[in-house]
Simulated assay, not measured.
Amino acid sequence: MVTAGHCTSGNGAILNPSQSDYIGPVVRDNWKNGHGSVKLSGQSYYSGDMALHRVNPGSSASARIYKGGKTSSSSRAVQDFWRRWAQEGDKVCTGGMMTGEKCGWKVADTQVTFRYSGGTTARNMVVAKKASGSCTVNGDSGGPVYTVDSSGQALRQGHHLRWRGRRGRP
């Protein structure tokens, strides 16, 4: 499973939102807590803020995106993943644990560097903006970013980060 690297516990574990249930170990991570984006082993570029983790035996995961908030069981099937880099003008949806599905986002910029107030830096990020409607809230980070096809299935593009900081270029 993929989530935001800053959502992991000490870059070693994925816990549920109340921090009481261990879901699985982080297998690969490009986020260093207190620092920000780091290059994955063997890569020459920064690839944002992500963590890949293994779901432990006894736990389960499926290719579905939940459409409602944290108590919802409404979901959407994930058909596949998006097969190209994000481009300005792409229309996307987000799925957050707190707010559920939010569509109407439009990619405004790519390869952006964010400098957070505490000195943490996220590199090579995509910015999407909404012209109207409600947005995401704290607790939605790590949720999926996706496009919905004509059959109502999702094409996974990445994951959501709620940003509050200064924006700059690499």
Rank of each mutant, 00 (worst) to 15 (best):
A122S: 09
Y116N: 00
N11T: 08
V78G: 03
V107L: 00
V92H: 12
L155A: 06
N124S: 10
A13I: 08
M1S: 10
R123G: 04
S141G: 11
V137Y: 04
N33T: 14
V27H: 00
R167C: 05
Q87S: 14
S151T: 09
S44N: 15
G104I: 11
F81C: 01
G10I: 07
T94S: 14
A86E: 12
D29R: 13
G168S: 14
L52I: 15
A63V: 03
F81L: 06
S37N: 08
M125E: 13
G119Q: 03
T147P: 02
R169L: 04
R115D: 07
R166P: 01
M50V: 03
G168A: 13
D29H: 13
L40I: 05
K129H: 08
W105P: 07
P17G: 10
W163M: 12
R164T: 00
P17M: 03
G104W: 11
S134H: 04
A128Q: 06
K70W: 07
E101I: 00
T8G: 08
M50S: 09
A131T: 13
S134A: 14
G34K: 10
G152N: 11
H159I: 04
Q111K: 14
Y146N: 00
A86G: 05
G36P: 05
S132N: 12
M50P: 03
M125Q: 13
Q19W: 08
T110I: 07
S47G: 08
V107H: 06
K106G: 02
T147D: 07
T113N: 03
K39Y: 01
G24I: 09
H35N: 11
H53P: 01
G165H: 00
W82N: 12
C7Y: 03
S134F: 13
T147H: 13
S151R: 02
A51V: 11
Q87I: 07
G89S: 12
Q79R: 15
G95A: 14
K106N: 08
S141T: 08
T8I: 04
S150C: 07
G68S: 07
M98Y: 13
S62V: 05
D21T: 15
G139I: 14
G165L: 02
G95K: 08
V137H: 07
M97K: 11
W85G: 09
V55F: 03
V137Q: 13
M125G: 02
A108P: 00
W85Y: 06
A108S: 15
Q157W: 07
D21W: 13
R164A: 08
R76F: 06
G89T: 08
W163C: 09
S20I: 10
R123L: 05
G12W: 07
V127D: 04
F81N: 14
G96A: 04
Y66K: 15
S59H: 15
V137G: 01
L15H: 00
H160E: 12
Y66S: 14
S117V: 01
S47P: 01
T99N: 12
T136W: 03
G142M: 09
D140P: 03
L155H: 12
H160Q: 09
G142A: 10
G96I: 08
I14H: 01
G69T: 12
M1K: 06
G168L: 13
G158A: 05
D80K: 15
A13L: 12
G133Q: 04
G96L: 06
S150W: 06
S62H: 14
N124G: 04
V127L: 11
K39L: 02
G68Q: 11
Q43W: 06
R123F: 04
